[in-house]
Nucleic acid binder design. Structure first.
Length: 205
DNA sequence: ACTCCGATGGTCT
DNA sequence: GACCATCGGAGTG
């Protein structure tokens, strides 16, 4: 019944198409805000949440990007055509998910940093070990854990039945906050982090 | 409020 | 061997 409420409020059939992911990475990062990430588990459980915080990582000239310097074994998904997942392990402990953008061989992606949970909260709470809804997906590592993303989901298409993003109401420009990216040491000056103003679900102020 | 730090493993030099 | 696109808990004020 949780899923029913969601489908009344949001049109989960209005999936984002491939062209969306082929836009400039900064555009995708901004436009992902307010959209709904949907993942269907093998047992039928639907997980969904509104994307409230993103970061753009540009191509091989962006010193903060994993793609910096060119293609390697790890960053190979980033050099694929936009519309797939790039999942990496962070600090040996967490997983983080990125949405690959632009054309093949560009090497760019958008990091999903925080999500406002909408459906599948029982499973998310169990995976995260907390009932605090504001802490289920408040950061890239926590988001991946709540949604159950692992290295197995690397290269996974976002144009599939089990994993996709849907359109939602357009976010007014006045609600988009643009800041420096967090947790990086190089290219700190670039303003490539975006989040929804006043959201209680972002990773940090 | 803040800072510090340990956990833990893959990737790259 | 160094470096992380993190997180949560401990300590301090």
């Amino acid at each position: 019944m949780e899923e029913k409420k969601i489908s009344e409020k949001y049109n989960l059939k209005d999936k984002v198409d491939e062209n969306f992911y082929l836009q400039s990475t900064e555009q995708v990062a901004v436009q992902l805000l307010n959209k709904i990430l949907v993942k269907c588990e093998k047992d039928g459980t639907i997980l969904a949440g509104k994307i409230v915080e993103t970061e753009a990582y540009l191509g091989k000239d962006d010193a903060a990007s994993h793609s910096f310097g060119g293609e390697t074994e790890r960053n190979r998904p980033m050099f694929e055509k936009g519309g797939i997942l790039y999942v990496y392990r962070s600090y040996g402990i967490h997983h983080c998910i990125n949405i690959v953008t632009e054309e093949k061989s560009i090497g760019a992606a958008v990091l999903i940093r925080a999500v406002e949970p909408l459906a599948g909260l029982v499973l998310m709470k169990r995976r995260r070990g907390t009932d605090n809804i504001h802490k289920l997906c408040n950061g890239p590592g926590n988001t991946a854990k709540a949604f159950g993303f692992t290295k197995d989901d690397n290269f996974q298409s976002l144009l599939s039945e089990n994993l996709f993003i849907t359109n939602n109401r357009i976010l007014p420009k006045s609600k988009i906050i643009k800041t420096q990216r967090v947790g990086i040491s190089r290219s700190r000056d670039q303003m490539l982090r975006f989040y929804i103003k006043n959201s209680k679900f972002i990773s940090r102020k």
